[in-house]
Amino acid sequence: MAFATAIILAFAAVILSNILWQGWEAFSWRFITSRADQNMFDSQQAGVLQMIAGTSARVVLMTIFVMPIGVITAIYLTEYARKDSLLTNLIQSAVNNLAGVPSIVFGLFGLGFFVNFIGGNLDLILRPEQAAPYWRNPALIWASLTLAVMTLPVVIVSTEEALKAIPPGLREASMALGATRLETVIRIVIPQALPGIMTGGVLAVGRAAGEVAPILFTGAAYYMSGYPSHLTDQFMDLGYHIFILSTQSPDIEGTRSILYATVITLLLLTFTLNLLTILMRARIRTKLRTFH
């Protein structure tokens, strides 16, 4: 057991030190606060600010999309649905299967469903006169929605666990006082489950932040000059940028340092996003424990 732990720690240390070693030189305040304009591959001038903005935006939007749907689904499954009905089993196995689908498949699904089908129909309905597609383009909203579908199982499963951990006696007490199921869910169940629900959020953010495949066809841009300002804009992304720097660079050796500096940035961003949710969760936990 100690040996296994040592191996895991050793691997983590090797990976992290390798990244830090190769990227430290190029990683600087200037690097993360300047934009990549015409000089994407120039290790002296290139920055990653747009990519930070793009990745943050898609992760935040994804969280906004996935949390309500995931939490409501989990509440339906644990609080309302009959445990042995066909529908419940169908949803449960759908959730489990969804968790096992490779992320590139989600990327293709996002392209087919969100960009082409939803986007295409929005163009037909909202802009029937225009020939040029407006909604039917890769965009921030479609990438975020694709990621939301991908992380849905994570949110559903951890919310379900949180709900199951609440003593049934609390629900009974509430309903014996004349509360309806909905009132019980809103006033007793959700406040109690909040830390567990937020754990689901942390896991979803962690899973989505580093993913590239789902956004490849649904919103990520190779290069764009400004920042995404509309839901229909494309965006530059840290993960995708790492892919670009490592495969598209005219001078692989020359851009290696900014490649690894971008990796450091992505890791830091993921850690920061996780840390924020963890802090929020800790605050709620103390609030629940001491109360007032």
Partner: peptide, 15 residues
């Protein structure tokens, strides 16, 4: 349930 109150075996105050 407003007219018929209930106290359970395991005390279950809300947290």
């Amino acid at each position: 349930r407003k007219k018929v109150g209930m106290v359970f075996q395991k005390s279950n105050p809300f947290p």
